[in-house]
Simulated scan of single mutants.
Amino acid sequence: MSTTLHDTETSALRRDAARAEADAARARADAEAMRARRPLPRRRWPGLLAALLVGAAIGALLMSNHYDDRTLGQRLDAGLAAAGDQVRGGTAELRQDAREAARDGALATERATANAAGAVGDARITTAVKAALATDPALSALRIDVTTEAGVVRLEGPAPDAAARERATTLAAAPDGVVRVDNRLVVGGAAR
């Protein structure tokens, strides 16, 4: 009977490890999809703005023809120079917007990668703790739930005695990456 429980626990560990690997692969795919989501949309407003400015400059030039002593060529040159300055300013603003969008995308990718790495690390810790508990003769036959979140391992379930409970804490603290063990094992009783 103990061998059957041990085999069941081992197969559960393998299933948990497979799920953790699938979750990690899904997180990596999500991060990659976010990185290559879509190119920046082509914006039409800079061209429309330039056309509007050129039209306004020509209209102002024609209206001011009566009040200006410059020749038509001089006024046209001045209007085109002003429109060119405004277009260059719009282009610089567009470049700045593209830089900000790239920076925001990089930050989002970095956050997604960090979250995926944390999930993989927690799954690895959970699997290692379950394997360690399965090797202990007093703890292997018990149904001990192990969860890990941000490196904190939580143990829940029954413990046959206080010594086994403390051994469970020691085993759970052993894997790399464990920050703390929250041992909620109940001695001599059933878990909640």
Results as ranks from 00 to 15, higher is better:
A27D: 14
Q74D: 13
G189M: 02
M63C: 08
G177H: 07
T3A: 13
M34C: 09
M34S: 10
G59M: 11
A159L: 02
Q96M: 10
D136N: 12
I144H: 01
A78N: 12
G157E: 04
S64F: 13
D161N: 10
R99L: 15
A78L: 15
T113Q: 12
A31S: 09
L62Q: 09
A190C: 00
M63R: 09
G55L: 15
A56W: 07
V129T: 02
G157F: 01
G47F: 08
R154I: 06
R28V: 13
S140V: 02
G157T: 08
V181Q: 07
A78V: 10
A108L: 12
P41L: 09
D77A: 15
S11Q: 06
T113H: 00
R88H: 07
G118M: 09
A116N: 01
N183K: 02
V152T: 14
D182Y: 08
E166F: 09
T3L: 14
H66C: 02
A25K: 10
G84C: 07
Y67A: 15
V152C: 03
L133K: 00
E32Q: 09
A114H: 03
A162M: 05
A22V: 08
A150M: 06
P46S: 06
R143P: 00
R14W: 12
H6K: 11
L62W: 13
A138R: 06
A162Y: 01
D30E: 15
A172G: 07
T147G: 09
